[in-house]
Amino acid sequence: MARASDEEDWADWMRAAIAGDGAAYRRVLEAVTPFLRGLARRGFARAGLSPAEAEDVVQEALLAIHLKRHTWDTARPIGPWLSAIARNKLVDALRRRPTAAHVPIDDLLETLPAAGGAEMEEGQELDRLLEQLGGRQRDIVRALSLEGRSAREAAQQFSMSEGAVRVALHRALKALALISGRQTA
């Protein structure tokens, strides 16, 4: 579990983010990532899977947190909300996999790496889903994530308005969450 003081910071930042503070939003997403990662890795280890593969769960949880952030009741603690979403994505991911190989859990727990910096961790699932998305939506998500562009830069690159880029981004993220969910249904 996260420490109570951390959670209070996260809640403050998330409230600021909901009020439109982009910097606070980045701060809260980056701050909760190690917490989500710990939860996902413990879940994978318990299921006899390699914790190193849990990053896809972290990313799917971040995507869900983003698209469903209006379901957090700002008067309530944020920890249970985050955990419930992450656990939900973990269960989906475990259900998608064929029966786990039987690796002794103790071995895996010993190899559990210390929560590394977010910048080092890489997932594969979203790249695969992006391929399914195709077209302009895929290009825009790529430009804003992999290529690290801002919405304004992407707007110039694709000769679109900045607003249109953001609309396309929002639709693309929703579509990604939808196809990801459909795989489990």
């Binding site: 980045r26 997403l29 980056e30 990532t33 990053e55 972290v58 990313q59 971040l62 995507l63 977010a118 910048e119 080092m120 961790e121 890489e122 997932g123 979203l126 790249d127 992006l130 998500v141 804003l144 994530s145 992999l146 690290g148 981004l169 993220l173």
Partner: peptide, 9 residues
């Protein structure tokens, strides 16, 4: 995709 790249988007 790296997680921080996702966050940037």
């Amino acid at each position: 995709m790296r997680t921080n790249e996702l966050i940037s988007a």
